[in-house]
Design a binder for these strands. Structure first.
Lengths: 123, 123
DNA sequence: CTTGACCTTGTCATTGGCGTCATGGTCTGA
DNA sequence: TCAGACCATGACGCCAATGACAAGGTCAAG
């Protein structure tokens, strides 16, 4: 299949697929005219990449999963290194969430005070 | 006071303060030699900016608070527009947090499955 | 007079995953 | 044979708040 078809099949864009290739996450053969040609299996591979991204990993993280991207990510477990990367990323996510929650609470608290002050001053 | 002193007094850097000035959040007089000169009050102002940033607002958001940055942010309530901006930003924060939590849960769930699979296959 | 600590403006780099041109080759159907 | 749909590479834009330079002026102390 060609890049446009793969894009449609995976809900992405040609731009995205070329980017993944630049990043070494997928590969392609070339037709005589230079067009990229993909095997059917790449569909699963791209979907797995999208799953990992949706789970909060970065493309760099995903590279650690390259060896097992062609199967079901869950069924075909990643290497120990892949798991380690995932655990690290999980920690990063937790940290980011904690920071944002703190920020939200600060903002909400300040806002509450302000609004209450306004209410009191009006009442 | 000069920029270096203000930076120290507010726990920032000269770079940051010039940026805030470019963004119209603080002002300064100039000494004959071109150096920026700040009033004491600017210290509070910068601290308030930092508070708002720490609360997850952007510099653009902070601009809506400019009129009330010289007092205690909580004691001197912002304009209705300021409150609206803060509320909008709060919604953005909530949304971002929700997305990240979802991502974290997905990753954690996938990881749990993988690890359990590994354990079962070993046991 | 010189070192060195301070200040000035201006500009590029960073982080991430793409979107969006710009420019040009390739192929297909009417 | 010509439009129009597809493909190629390459490079800049974005969002945000700085960090990190470069190249230069200013001033106090030794």
């Amino acid at each position: 299949m060609r890049i446009g078809e793969l894009a449609q099949a995976t809900g992405t864009t040609p731009r995205v697929l070329r980017h993944y290739e630049d990043e070494g996450l997928i590969t392609s053969r070339r037709a005589p005219n230079g067009y990229r040609i993909y095997d059917e299996g790449v569909v699963v591979r791209v979907r797995n990449i999208r799953h990992l991204l949706a789970a909060g990993l970065t493309l760099a993280d995903v590279r650690a999963f390259v060896p097992c991207l062609d199967g079901d990510v869950v069924a075909a477990p990643p290497s120990g290194r892949g798991i380690q990367v995932a655990l690290d990323r999980l920690a990063v996510l937790e940290e980011r969430i904690a920071v944002q929650i703190e920020a939200r609470d600060r903002l909400a608290a300040a806002l509450r005070q302000v609004v209450e002050g306004k209410i009191r001053s009006v009442a």
